[in-house]
Design a protein around this nucleic acid. Structure first.
Lengths: 238, 238, 238, 238
DNA sequence: GATGAATGAGTGTTCATTCAT
DNA sequence: CATGAATGAACACTCATTCAT
């Protein structure tokens, strides 16, 4: 059924942000040096903002020398991009796993929303970097082809396109546009949360889910369904 | 038609971005110098991004000396903020005028959406600065109390709250949250447009309007229609 | 008598720093504009130091427009020099008048010292400018031929030379050197006073006078020499 | 004897200004970089004056990059202060060593004077910086608590106080004031020398010594007092 | 003469990046 | 691989001076 709004568990991605064990290597005492730098970068970018962040401070937080960073990354920009991409890889992976567990369009949408907000709740720093810093200036939104972001959006637009194929969602909306719109809501509310807004992410997830589904759902065939839609529309148009 | 959201004229704000005369004073040789600087600032910020913009380039574009900028603005940050606030003042004013023309909640929502996207379409540069640059880092989103933005959002949340009071919109959603969510969609789609996405702003406006209204509308009482609506609502409210 | 150490009045220059009436002119409402600028310059230079002083602030204090200053003075340096010279003219004049009142070398020395310290006490700001600012950098101590200062020193070295001619002061000391040394003491103690040191200028004047005279006096010939020495010493020790 | 005014050697501090080895460290490529910057700073400050000196020129003279200076010093001000303090440390040390060699008040005074003028003769640049630049404006005379200078003066005022305790010097003069006065003479004559005045520093030292001692000496008690005064005077006049 | 808006040369300081060790 | 001292390009901002009114 189109509209089945049960809220699934909110603990799926609970551990997403936890440190992966890392692959110990015999040659280096700190095999995860690269990881530590990425972590440190995200932490400092989140706290200070990209422009205000000094490479030397990332180095200090990561416990490495300034120059070491340049053994692993091309430059400061690259560091932001790589930090972002590494995070997105983890996010995309966990999201894909989650979505694979169900066939239902509605449930997929629900999970997408929950997953997004949960990620935000679990790793505020990362969320801030993605939400705020990556938007900054041509350097990251234009020159850099944001593949991971497109992957993320495609995951969503595919769900929507499928829903349209199944006749569950309105067919007159460009799935990419709808995906982008939903992402916009998620992103804005995440920003609100990240910048200190008090906000219950679970309730927010539910509301987003409901309104998005209601807004995009196709009225069911059959007499009553039709009337509902008409009634609704009439009200709206007054 | 399910949802017939008559699209009102899309030309309301057509001239919003035109140069205001400025207040000529007997003492200043070029009374509009301040305006020229603001314009230039928006243009250059939009093109290069705030961090990559040199004050001297703004001066060059504005046709004034570097130092002149500091007669009108405290510093580079202030220039961005003042450019933003001046623009927001114009936007808020034209938006308020537009909203005052109608009493209908639906129409107000429609006009808000159209107004926003039209502004984006009319002044891509300004839209880019607002959409992209102002998000940059604590400096502008945290330290700076963004009053104008709050005014903008309040205009929208008031519409929603009124709609709830009239029983037209779902009452279980925090109007501020709903406003923020709608703004998120508008902003994200604006960004998409601003960064070069091919996109029909009118159609986008219509779709946003429809989905937002459908997503948040309250079903009317009445026989069969009623049941659907109730069912829907019940589901939603758990 | 060579050594008569009575302290003459300390009120000679009491009014030296008072505003001269100015020569009212029919053409200008503020005939003393130039004077007001000089006064303001001294006040601000004294408070902030030359380098930290903005011409615009002098203008504000003087109650004139920035540009007006350049009608009366070539540039900022010139302003300092002219302020200094105008002050020195007043000082030299009042000093010359004072010294003309007596023939005694000892009394002249005494009056010189008193006059100097009194000037410092009466116009701390001026004293600070002369003592501190004028020493700054080649611009004022090297490039600028400090004629007034030389005049001031010459007044003193002439006294000393005369004393030597009369056999009252040691003849084996270069009068210019002795004058400079005495000035050094005066200047250093003035600086001490000007920078906030608590200090009784009258007592300081007496001590400087006594020690300078004792240090440079010639013992009288003849048996009475002994008595002279004793008398001298007794006087000094009170 | 209280007053034995033989002129001791004038070569004590001859090597005071020579470069100290510096503390080479394994990590720094050029261990003496800090010293080179200090030297260069003194040279350029002396030549151009503090305000007219560009940090970049100090860097050029020192043979380092502009930024390197900021690895060793906080800012331009700090550079002046540190250059001054490092020099004063050397001066204070060599002076203390010199004064420790004798118990006689007269000899200590003599050595102090000689040491001061010799320092001036040996390192004109340093003398100029200390004499001229450090007086500049509140920044260095007021805000900066000039500890080293106070140490220097205290060394002198202690000598004087001791002399007073021994009954050799007049007890009615504040030792701090006397010290300051003597310093004023030294400083003024140094300035004269530094700014190009032709002047024999040895003779100047002797004259200062004699006049200061004569000006401040106490006549010995007893009938011979008279003779003492005469003897004193005779000695002084050679 | 007087004004003060406009000018633009001038510079201290930062910090991403390099490279000798 | 790792270091961190050294680099030097880059730039916001100031303020003495000018000049059209």
């Amino acid at each position: 059924m189109v509209i089945h709004f049960g809220m699934a568990s909110f603990e799926w991605v609970q551990k997403m942000a936890e440190q992966e064990p890392g692959k110990p290597s015999a040659t280096s005492r700190t095999p995860d040096k690269r990881e530590r730098i990425l972590e440190a970068a995200i932490a400092v970018f989140a706290e200070k903002g990209f422009a205000q962040t000094k490479v030397s401070e990332i180095a200090k937080v990561a416990g490495v020398a300034d120059g070491t960073i340049y053994l692993y990354f091309e430059n400061k920009d690259d560091l932001l991009i790589k930090a972002y991409e590494a995070s997105m890889d983890r996010i995309l992976e966990s999201l894909a796993r989650l979505l694979a567990e169900t066939e239902s369009t509605a449930e997929k949408v629900e999970r997408f929303i929950q997953h997004h907000l949960q990620m935000v709740g679990n790793d505020k720093q990362l969320a801030k970097v993605i939400t705020v810093e990556l938007r900054t200036s041509p350097k990251f939104m234009v020159e850099y082809k944001n593949t991971k972001f497109n992957d993320y959006l495609r995951l969503l637009s595919d769900i929507i396109a499928n829903g349209q194929g199944e006749g569950v969602l309105r067919g007159d909306i460009d799935p990419a546009l709808a995906a982008r719109a939903l992402f916009g809501m998620l992103d804005e509310l995440s920003l609100m949360f990240v910048l200190g807004g008090r906000m219950d992410l679970r309730i927010t997830a539910r509301l987003l889910y409901e309104t998005f589904m209601n807004g995009t759902a196709v009225p069911q065939s059959g007499d009553s369904a039709t009337q509902r839609a008409i009634a609704l529309t009439n009200r709206i148009n007054r």
